[in-house]
């Protein structure tokens, strides 16, 4: 299993990609409330997914919840763009593990050609979820919290970066979507943290 700087997990032996918290249409849902956010994040998010599928030649894309941000963000234009994107990757199997935003956004648009499943979705040895809850049936891969950490060092330097947060029973992926941000998490002894820094994934030491 490889953590990619594109904020995805790649399982080469199965040709499977995992991505969490894509939040399509988030800018449009703001606009629907008359908050003037520019268009662009959704298109850029789909472009990045294009590039990721091409470079890995993935056969299966599994989304760990929150594919769409809100029902109000599903404008005709964005739905068209989404279907066109899906059509470009017709041979790739796609699965959506439903997250909190998906449940409120409703069923995916017709012709989405997605397998929509509830959590936990078992792909041994993994239990795929949206929420970071341990599961008796497998090691959990999930999203939801948009993890990030604060790095600190000599000379009182610090920086906040999105990360993969890998624990004993649960691994949380960084949010993939453009317009998402990250929330600071608190790792504990035994965890692994890999930050996404531009085009690299870097494991960072944890100290007490």
């Amino acid at each position: 299993m490889v953590a990619l700087p594109q904020k995805a997990l790649w399982w080469p032996s199965r040709g499977t990609l995992f991505v969490a918290d894509v939040h399509l249409g988030k800018e449009a849902s703001f606009q629907a409330q008359s908050i003037p956010i520019p268009m662009g994040p959704t298109a850029e998010t789909l472009n990045r997914l294009d590039a990721l599928i091409r470079s890995t030649r993935a056969e299966h894309l599994i989304l760990l919840g929150d594919l769409w941000h809100a029902k109000s963000g599903r404008t005709p234009k964005l739905v068209d763009d989404f279907i066109a994107w899906r059509t470009r990757h017709q041979t790739v199997k796609m699965t959506l593990v439903e997250g909190n935003h998906d449940l409120k956004s409703g069923k995916l648009p017709a012709n989405s050609n997605f397998e929509e499943v509830a959590e936990p979705f078992l792909v041994p040895p993994f239990a795929l979820s949206h929420y970071p809850e341990p599961c008796a049936d497998g090691y959990v891969l999930c999203g939801h919290i948009h993890p990030g950490v604060l790095l600190e060092g000599r000379g009182r330097q610090s920086m906040k970066l999105p990360c993969f947060w890998i624990g004993k029973r649960v691994a949380v992926l960084p949010a993939f979507g453009e317009f998402t941000g990250c929330a600071r998490v608190s790792p504990v002894e035994g965890d692994q943290v890999m930050v996404v820094a531009e085009d690299q994934v870097i494991r960072v030491p944890l100290v007490s």
Partner: peptide, 25 residues
């Protein structure tokens, strides 16, 4: 004073090599 800003001309990866994450106690 603990409220600090950072100015840097190093790359992020150069900087990360010198940093760590504090463990939750």
């Amino acid at each position: 004073d603990r409220l600090r800003e950072t100015v840097s001309t190093e790359s992020i990866s150069q900087r990360i090599q010198k940093l760590t994450v504090l463990l939750e106690t």
